[in-house]
């Protein structure tokens, strides 16, 4: 099985290892992510203003380009797969909106005409976690595990955009289980904690760092207090905030110990026997933990 995969901008810059591990893992699981030949930025945040069509053009452009791509792929369905949870949420919301509002879709298609694009409204947007749960299945993943992640105590951090809004959620928005089940499938221990969807502060890191630091302190201390030795996430912005701001807080003397942040695909790669060498996206060095557990 192959999927039309929309990377978004961050997977090519700050989160290269997320993309690399996801693509490698997808090949092993026979649910391959094939990158769209042409794509653009989705706009990151979906517009909640009811009268702003302009901000809905970019996501629809991506959906139409993916439809073209789906025609070229063999053994595929009408799915666009994303890894970044902000892309996932934005595309899903706009996809639902244009499905409900034919007039808006017509207006946007008129804008896409000059690029010879047209969106039919028949694609489905899915986050890769949904593919793993619904189409690959966790039993299949268990079968492919070569190295159990013994000793890893993992806190799953969903962030906001995997669970909000209702149009875009990939799981129950108050009691999600997909990342925890995946953690168990890989042989790691699940840490139960209350901060799995406490917002990290998101784009406030650009000009209101205090807000972000406040959140990061709450989230990381909360994970450590409950015995976690790693946090996993699916969002490049959550990962950046959790990772870089921990280093900042440590330099300021506000926290003593840091906790490494992983993308869920990195843990999958280790468990499925892919050798990981590149940790340059990380701010908190994860190597000491992985070495002490004999995982790299």
């Amino acid at each position: 099985m192959k999927y039309s995969y929309f990377p978004g901008c961050n997977l090519k810059t700050n989160a290269k290892e997320y993309e690399h591990t996801a693509v490698e893992v997808s090949k092993i699981l026979d649910a391959e992510l094939v990158e769209m030949p042409v794509f653009n930025c989705c706009g990151t945040v979906h517009s909640m203003a009811s009268d702003n069509t302009m901000r809905r053009i970019a996501p629809v452009r991506i959906l139409s380009r993916s439809e073209e791509h789906q025609k070229e792929l063999e053994d595929t369905n009408n799915t666009v797969v994303t890894l970044c949870s902000m892309c996932s949420s934005t595309l899903k919301v706009v996809n639902e909106e244009v499905k409900e509002d034919e007039e808006m879709l017509q207006k946007i298609n008129w804008q896409l005409e000059r690029d010879n694009l047209k969106y039919s409204g028949h694609s489905e947007v899915k986050h890769y976690l949904e593919i793993l749960r619904d189409e690959v299945g966790f039993e299949e993943i268990v079968k492919k595990v070569k190295k159990q992640l013994k000793g890893m105590k993992v806190a799953s951090y969903y962030g906001c955009m995997l669970l909000h809004p209702d149009k875009a959620k990939i799981d129950d928005s108050e009691t999600p289980t997909v990342m925890e089940t995946l953690t168990l499938a890989l042989g790691a221990e699940v840490v139960d904690w209350p901060y799995f969807k406490t917002c990290c502060g998101s784009y406030h890191v650009v000009d209101k760092e205090d807000i972000v630091n406040n959140q990061i302190l709450k989230i990381t201390e909360g994970a450590k207090k409950r015995g976690a030795n790693a946090i996993i996430t699916a969002c490049p912005l959550c990962a950046y905030n959790l990772d870089s701001q921990q280093v900042f807080l440590q330099k300021k003397g506000i926290i003593k110990e840091t906790i490494p942040i992983f993308y869920f695909t990195q843990l999958m790669a280790i468990a499925l026997g892919i050798k990981l060498e590149n940790f340059e996206d990380h701010h908190v060095d994860p190597k000491p933990l992985l070495k002490s557990l004999g995982l790299i």
């Binding site: 970044c84 902000m86 784009y203 406030h204 890191v205 950046y240």
Partner: peptide
Amino acid sequence: KVTGEKAKNLPNIALVGSFRKN
């Protein structure tokens, strides 16, 4: 005015998100 070392390292989605909201 968003410049310097920090701006260079910021994820694209942080910048796009912030500019879209602000």
